[in-house]
């Protein structure tokens, strides 16, 4: 039964991933991606990773997807007519190249996975009660062994905040010139 759910979730995530790539409307792509993440979260949960499943839903579904959706709406890209690169259907070299590369990567990795010769898992191992990612141990490890990575991540978030602020902040009135023609005027002004 549990296995069945796993395979169902896996199928869902693959189909949804295809949906992301194939959908014409970016809003649909975002929604498909969300579905795919839910499927992946389910596989995490079934594999014994409760904490990961939780943050997968919370961070990905709750934060990242909203961010995507927000930008799509902000830039008013939801209109399907505005989307010109209907993939696959339209022919041309790029889609075929893309599919080709994807297929090659898939074939290569599948081949190596098939030949992986992974050690046989012992029979009858049951998941520990705390799951395979017990929170306390994770916390302990993260604050000792991986302190540097953890602190690095915090600096990373800080830098990201600063960087995104620079990139996305509205241009100030004195420099706010969106059409490129007036750029020289702005240059002179700034100088």
């Amino acid at each position: 039964m549990v296995d069945l759910i796993f395979y169902a979730a896996a199928t869902l995530s693959v189909l949804a991933a295809l949906g992301v790539v194939l959908a014409r409307n970016p809003v649909h792509s975002v929604l498909w991606l969300l579905a795919s993440f839910v499927g992946i979260a389910t596989t995490y949960l079934l594999s014994g990773f409760q904490f990961l499943a939780a943050i997968q839903v919370l961070v990905y579904g709750g934060a990242i997807m909203v961010l995507f959706l927000f930008v799509v709406m902000l830039l008013n890209l939801g209109d399907p007519d505005a989307e010109h690169d209907a993939p696959v259907m339209q022919g041309g070299l790029t889609p075929r190249l893309g599919i080709g590369i994807g297929c090659i990567v898939a074939a290569l990795t599948l081949l190596t996975v098939a030949n992986a010769n992974l050690a046989q898992l012992p029979e009858g191992v049951v998941l520990p009660i705390g799951g395979l990612d017990p929170l306390k141990q994770m916390a302990l490890a993260m604050f000792t062994q991986w302190t540097l990575a953890f602190e690095g991540a915090s600096v990373l978030l800080l830098a990201t905040a600063v960087g995104v602020l620079v990139l996305a902040k509205r241009e100030r009135a004195s420099v706010a010139v969106s059409p490129p023609q007036t750029l020289t005027a702005a240059k002179e002004e700034a100088a």
Partner: peptide, 23 residues
């Protein structure tokens, strides 16, 4: 691993197919 390989390949293919930067 196979599931992960399939998802990775779909991602790679989409990366090369799509032109909409958000996608």
């Amino acid at each position: 691993l196979i599931l992960s390989a399939i998802l990775f390949s779909i991602g790679v293919a989409g990366f090369f197919i799509r032109r909409n930067l958000i996608v």
